[in-house]
């Protein structure tokens, strides 16, 4: 293993942010946080994360928009994005996935489940670059 995977957590609820930060740090990832969409985009621009945990309902710029913008950045196509939502409607899930999100987690979430999904996505992305290059 090289350097730990970089995770950016975005949520406007400080307590949720705190709990996710604790979980991810504990799991050995390098964690950064942002409390709204604007901050999140700035963080992504500063340093590309491997994975983002992105809340949907946020002031200023919502999660969907952030997701779309990140995915449209030239070098960020491979950033894994997990959407977090408290609304829990299928329409939103579809919308998130269609905008390029890799997974979708409904609040309140199970910590164990969340960690597993994050680990799974990161493992996948590690394997993918080779398969992607093979494909191309």
């Amino acid at each position: 293993m090289n350097s730990p995977a970089k995770i950016l957590i975005v949520d406007d609820e400080p307590n949720i942010l705190l709990s996710l930060k604790f979980l991810m740090t504990k799991a050995g990832y390098s964690v950064r946080t942002a409390k709204d969409g604007e901050e999140a985009l700035a963080e992504v621009a500063r340093e590309k994360p491997d994975l983002m945990l992105l809340d949907v309902m946020m002031p200023k710029i919502d999660g969907f928009t952030v997701c779309q913008r990140v995915k449209s950045m030239a070098d960020c196509v491979d950033v894994r994005i997990v959407m977090l939502t408290a609304r829990g409607r299928d329409v939103e899930r579809e919308k998130g996935l269609s905008l390029g999100a890799d997974d979708y987690i409904t609040k309140p979430f199970s910590t164990k489940d969340t960690l597993e999904r994050v680990a799974g996505l990161l493992a996948q992305s590690k394997a993918e670059p080779s398969s992607e290059s093979a494909a191309t």
């Binding site: 609820e13 307590n15 949720i16 709990s19 996710l20 604790f22 979980l23 504990k26 309902m57 408290a86 609304r87 829990g88 409607r89 409904t106 609040k107 309140p108 979430f109 199970s110 910590t111 164990k112």
Partner: peptide, 24 residues
């Protein structure tokens, strides 16, 4: 949707921290 969101938000924190305390 709003009610759902408003209720889920505190619930999320409660569940997360409860699980953290349980698992750690």
């Amino acid at each position: 949707a709003t009610v759902s969101h408003e209720i889920r938000t505190p619930l999320t924190s409660i569940r997360s921290f409860s699980e953290i305390l349980r698992d750690n």
